[in-house]
Design a protein around this nucleic acid. Structure first.
Lengths: 277, 277
DNA sequence: CTTCATATACTCGAATCGAGTATAAAGGAG
DNA sequence: CTCCTTTATACTCGATTCGAGTATATGAAG
C-alpha cells in the first residue's frame, strides 16, 4: 500500500524545525497525509547521478527515503491522497492466487536481454535464474528489488529510456518505483523477524485478518494451521474476549497485540550456536 | 576492525566521477587505504542537526555511511592507516572471555540516570533492562547501538557535552562512534543470515579460524561442535585437501568458501509458513 | 436439516538445535 | 619412549520446532 499522488511517493525537501530527520518526517507525514505514522525507519539514500535522465548530469539529487507503516483510515475526502495497492506497480510480485501469468512474458524478455550480450550472457542468466526462482528452492519473495533491477537493466519497465515491449506494471515518477521496490523488499524481509505487521492492524483483529495482511505483504499464500501455531507460540497477541461475525462461516475470536511483550523477548532467536558456561 | 585515522572513520566528501556512490566509494577506499573493498553496503544516512555541537545550528551536515569488509593485509608501511579492533571503543561489547567487568559501572551509571527523572524512570529502566539483558533471555549482541544510545543519553561517553564520570571506552571524532556502533549492530545481525564472514577470511582457512572470526564480530564465545555442524550443513565451504600445522594441537584441514553456492540456495529459510499447492 | 464456509484443535514424522561425549593426531616435558 | 596438553573431528541423545495434513466446531444460507 502506498500513498498515491499521481503515481509518485510522497516526498519533499527537508527543511524543518526538527533536529532529527525522523521527527521532522513524522510531523510532515501527519500534516500532509492525515495519517499518523506508526512505524518509521530509514530505508535507503539514493544519490546516483543518473536518477533523473532529463536533468544536468553534473548535479546530484540526494533522496533519503523512509519506510513508514500506518493503519488504513476511513476515506477522508477527495483532497486527501488515496491508498493504492503496490501490486498495481508490481503485478509480477503477487503470488497469492497463482503464479502471475505475466511472469512468462517477463522472463522471456529477460532471457532475450541475457542472450543479447554474449560476454555477459552467463552471469545475467545466473541472476535471472536466482531472482525468479528457476534454480534453488523456488520463488523468494524477498528478492523484489533484484527482480526490478533486472527488469530495469533489460529495459522492460517504462522508466528505462529506450523501453522495448509493453513496459510491465504501472510506471511511477522518477525513480520512485525503484524506491518502492526497495521498500517492499525491506518490509518483506523485516516481517520475518520483527512484528511490524501489527502497525498495519486495527486494535482488534482476527487471526485470518492478520494472516491476510502478512500474505498481502509477502505476496504469498500461507499455511493456516502453521501460521496460527507460529503466532501463538510467539505470544505476541492475546484474546480480547470478544467475537466477530463478519459474514459467512464460524465467528472468529478477536485478538489484540501485546505491545509489552517486545521488551521481554528476543525476537527470532540468535541463530548463532552460543556456548554457555 | 576499523581503519584508524586519529580515532575517526575514513570519510570524505562525495565528489567523484562515478555515477553511483557505491562505485565511487569503492575506488576511493582502494586509493585511500590500499585495501580493496570486498563487501560494501550502505549503512545509514546521518542528518540530524546537532551532530556537531560546535557548528552553526542552522546548517545540516549529511553523512551517508557505508559498511565495508576487507581482508586484513600485511603491514603496508606507516603512511597507511593501521587496523584497530573496535573493542577499543566499545570494551563493554566484548563477551568472549567473560562478561566485561566494566559493565557493572556502566549499568550503575545508567541506573542513576534513570532515577534522576521520576517521570521517565520506568521507561528508561525498561530500555536499560532490555538492552543490557537484565530481563528476557539475557545479553543480546545485536543491541550494540541501543546500548550506545542509552550511554550517550546518560552522558556516560565523552562525546556527550556534559560528561559525568570517566567516559567509557575510547572516544572518536564527531559522531563517528555512533556510526561505528550502527555498523557493529548491522554486521552482527547480518552474519546470522548472510555469509558475509567469508569476506574477512583468507582464501583458505581452518574451521577454528572461521569460528574465531565470527566470535570476534559477535563478541561471544560459540559452541564448537554446533558451530561446525551449522557451517557444515549450510554447504558453504569445501575442503581444499590441504592441512595446516600452525603451532600446537592436531593439524587442521583447510577449507575454502564456495562462492557459487550463494546463487543456488536460499540463505536462512523463509520463516514464513508457506502453503504449497 | 443439510450444506457451505470458516474457525479452531490436534497429530505425526522429519528436521533442527542445544548440550555433551568420545576419539584422533600433533608437539613438548620428563 | 611415555604421558600430557592441545587442538581437531566425529558422534550421540533428547527436546524443540517445522512442514504437512486431519478432525471437529459453529455460524449462515437454502
Amino acid at each position: 500500500m502506498t500513498v498515491r499522488l499521481g503515481d509518485a511517493l510522497p516526498s519533499g525537501s527537508f527543511e524543518s524545525d526538527h533536529h532529527s530527520l525522523q521527527a521532522g518526517l513524522r510531523a510532515w507525514i501527519e500534516n500532509k497525509t492525515g495519517h499518523p505514522a506508526g512505524y518509521l525507519e530509514q530505508l535507503y539514500t539514493f544519490a546516483d547521478r543518473d536518477r533523473e535522465p532529463s536533468s544536468d548530469p553534473n548535479t546530484r539529487r540526494i533522496s533519503i527515503s523512509y519506510l513508514g507503516l500506518v493503519r488504513e483510515q476511513s476515506a477522508l475526502g477527495s483532497d486527501r491522497p488515496q491508498w493504492l495497492g503496490w501490486y498495481e506497480y508490481f503485478p509480477w510480485e503477487d503470488h497469492r492466487d497463482r503464479r502471475p501469468p505475466v511472469l512468462d512474458a517477463i522472463i522471456e524478455g529477460l532471457d532475450e536481454w541475457a542472450s543479447s550480450d554474449s560476454e555477459q550472457h552467463a552471469s545475467r542468466r545466473h541472476r535471472i535464474d536466482h531472482a525468479f526462482g528457476r534454480v534453488g528452492p523456488g520463488w523468494n519473495e524477498d528478492l523484489a528489488l533484484q527482480r526490478y533491477e533486472l527488469m530495469y537493466e533489460a529495459c522492460l519497465v517504462a522508466e528505462c529510456g529506450r523501453l522495448r515491449g509493453p513496459g510491465f506494471g504501472r510506471a511511477m515518477a522518477g525513480d520512485h518505483r525503484r524506491i518502492l521496490a526497495t521498500g517492499i523488499a525491506r518490509l518483506r524481509a523485516k516481517i520475518k523477524y520483527h512484528p511490524v505487521v501489527f502497525e498495519l492492524m486495527p486494535n482488534s483483529f482476527t487471526l485470518l485478518g492478520l494472516q491476510q495482511t502478512v500474505e498481502a505483504l509477502a505476496g504469498l499464500r500461507l499455511h493456516k494451521p502453521n501460521f496460527r501455531r507460529q503466532v501463538d507460540q510467539q505470544e505476541l497477541i492475546e484474546e480480547t474476549g470478544e467475537i466477530t461475525s463478519e459474514t459467512r462461516g464460524r465467528p472468529a475470536k478477536l485478538f489484540r497485540y501485546r505491545r509489552s511483550i517486545l521488551e521481554a523477548r528476543a525476537l527470532a532467536g540468535s541463530r548463532l550456536p552460543i556456548a554457555r558456561d
